[in-house]
């Protein structure tokens, strides 16, 4: 039971690839694996703690002001994460620019607290939130690995494919490091996921009809 809450959001209920939440940062920080990893850890920690705190005080939250209360708690945690990064990993925080702050407006966090933590006790809420954080991380790491490997020939900054500039054979695809490739890779990833799990495909908004041959006079 508890394991299911943790494992479901990895593939079948993946927040990024299935529910299409939290796309902004998923696309923006995936130019290299180290930025993607930092962002994933920050988001997972923030969403887990936020779900825990909100779930613990859920019976005391008046219904009318729940969104603003949740936002305040989330924003506080995000500020702490941002300040910690600035204090202990300043270079990384410079590379992530505004995207750590934007965890506060990430739909995954507000989505989990609003949809799950408000109605469930702290332990399952935290497990669920952590599962979603890990699902987000999984997509980020896959996209970042593709982009970094083909864009620069490195993984986590280590040379994997010998680039031509250093006497090797590999010509880096600079496009991989630009914005368009992030969209296209994520689109292809969604296609792959839906080919593997066909029931995740969207319902059609229209019905297909067999074309009847016209009766000839």
């Amino acid at each position: 039971m508890a394991l299911k809450q943790l494992s479901d959001p990895l593939i079948d209920k993946n927040p990024v690839a299935v529910h299409i939440l939290g796309i902004c940062s998923a696309l923006a920080v995936t130019t290299s694996m180290s930025t993607a990893l930092t962002m994933s850890v920050a988001l997972t920690v923030v969403v887990t703690l936020a779900a825990g705190i909100i779930s613990a005080i859920r019976v005391h939250i008046p219904n009318q002001i729940r969104i603003i209360l949740q936002l305040t708690i989330i924003a506080t945690l995000v500020i702490v994460a941002d300040q910690l990064l600035q204090a202990f990993a300043f270079g990384m925080s410079q590379r992530l620019t505004v995207f750590v702050s934007l965890i506060a407006t990430n739909c995954i966090v507000l989505g989990r607290t609003e949809a799950y933590a408000m109605h469930n006790p702290p332990v399952p809420a935290m497990l669920d939130a952590m599962g979603n954080g890990l699902g987000y991380s999984l997509v980020l790491m896959v996209v970042a690995a593709i982009r970094e490997l083909f864009g620069a020939g490195t993984l986590f900054g280590f040379q994997v494919l010998a680039t031509q500039a250093e006497g090797g054979w590999f010509v880096p695809l600079r496009l991989m490091l630009l914005a368009p490739s992030a969209f296209i890779i994520l689109g292809l990833l969604i296609w792959a996921l839906r080919a593997w799990r066909p029931w995740l495909a969207e319902a059609r908004e229209f019905a297909l009809r067999e074309a009847k041959p016209e009766a000839r006079p």
Binding site: I20, F183, I184, L186, G187, L188, I190, W191, A192, L193, R194, A195, P198, A201, E202, R204
Partner: peptide
């Protein structure tokens, strides 16, 4: 599988 969001991303 490409219908809808997959195509939208591309």
């Amino acid at each position: 599988g490409l219908e809808g969001l997959g195509a939208a991303f591309i």
